[in-house]
Design a protein around this nucleic acid. Structure first.
Lengths: 188, 188
DNA sequence: ACCTGAACACCGTTCAAGT
DNA sequence: ACCTGAACACCGTTCAAGT
């Protein structure tokens, strides 16, 4: 059994950086200096490395941002899962909104499908499932999801860095109820 | 009577640039090369001038973007004004959404209140008035406006440069009806 | 009064070289 | 295999100087 760091038949320097280390450092820069300061150059400095060293572990800045978004979505507590599907919608979308609070670029990352976040896909699936459970007909589920996503994105983008706003949850409920009201068979 | 270009008691070069000329050139760059190419340097090149010449006529890039947004909002046809307040909401917000299609930065410009667009203010007032006419209680008008604005922004931001989407209007109607349904006294 | 040119402090990324 | 340093093609903006 060989240690993976000293495999024979492999030459060259052992890696000093890793995807994980880069994502962790990026989170640190994000927390301490904000998203607008998170550049490849700043990140390299944080790791006492050079900008180009990062490109051995990450395809480009977009992939890095996706990885960081993914890591933040993974932190959503999956044990919070209300019984009623409408509440599941509200809590799931609310959790996603909280994540986007700290990852403003997530909106663009999700819009361009250059890279996809597996963790985000899981949330999307849960929301879509909850919509179906609310009685939204299958032909309208994608449409309904898009409207909800638009509200979520807009709520985040529209108020730049203000307080989370008391009306956010109420607004989300208005959007959801508006959508559920469009189908004839309103559960609720 | 003096020509304004040759007033006595005034020295120095006559201006070759003007706010208007800059905004017009900016619109040309926007149309021909897209918003992401609209930089102070690119704009100076378009005007056969230098980046710093622009700063004699415009405070900074943010003000320029506000002026360009304002000019685009002014182009909204004010004669389109449906009788029913709910239709006025849908058409007003829809028109604004069309403008933001071509001025993606408008979202940020509006969010930061560093500069304000008078034309945007007029639209906001019209929407607020229509909300009141729909029976939204005064205490909720601002909240309702915010939810609509969030949907509008999100709809724009979420799909980057895709087709305008058949479901946009329907989504907007769902949001509006959800809001109107939250008050007890639904007109419609 | 208006414009220019050089400079500052940044970006993401490519390319060629070093160990 | 992994990392470095210089370079390219950009940003917005300040500052000092030119006419």
């Amino acid at each position: 059994m060989q240690s993976p760091t000293t495999r024979p038949g492999r030459t060259g320097q052992p890696p000093r950086l890793s995807r994980d280390a880069i994502v962790v450092a990026a989170q640190r820069v994000l927390d301490e200096e904000g998203a607008e300061r998170l550049s490849m150059r700043r990140l390299a400095r944080e790791l006492s490395s050079t900008p180009m060293a990062l490109y051995r572990h990450v395809l480009d800045k977009d992939e890095l941002l996706m990885l960081l978004l993914d890591a933040n979505i993974q932190r959503i507590d999956p044990s919070v899962r209300p019984e009623h599907p409408r509440d599941r919608l509200v809590s799931g979308v609310g959790a996603l909104c909280d994540v986007l609070e700290g990852c403003p670029w997530g909106v663009e990352v999700a819009a361009s499908d250059k890279f996809v976040s597996a963790a985000l896909m899981r949330i999307v699936e849960a929301v879509v499932e909850a919509l179906a459970d609310c009685g939204v007909p299958p032909s309208d589920v994608v449409y309904a999801y898009r409207v909800i996503w638009a509200y979520l994105v807009g709520e985040r983008v529209a108020r730049g860095g203000s307080e989370p706003s008391e009306g956010r949850r109420r607004g989300l409920e208005a959007v959801i109820d508006g959508l559920l009201g469009q189908g004839a068979d309103r559960i609720l």
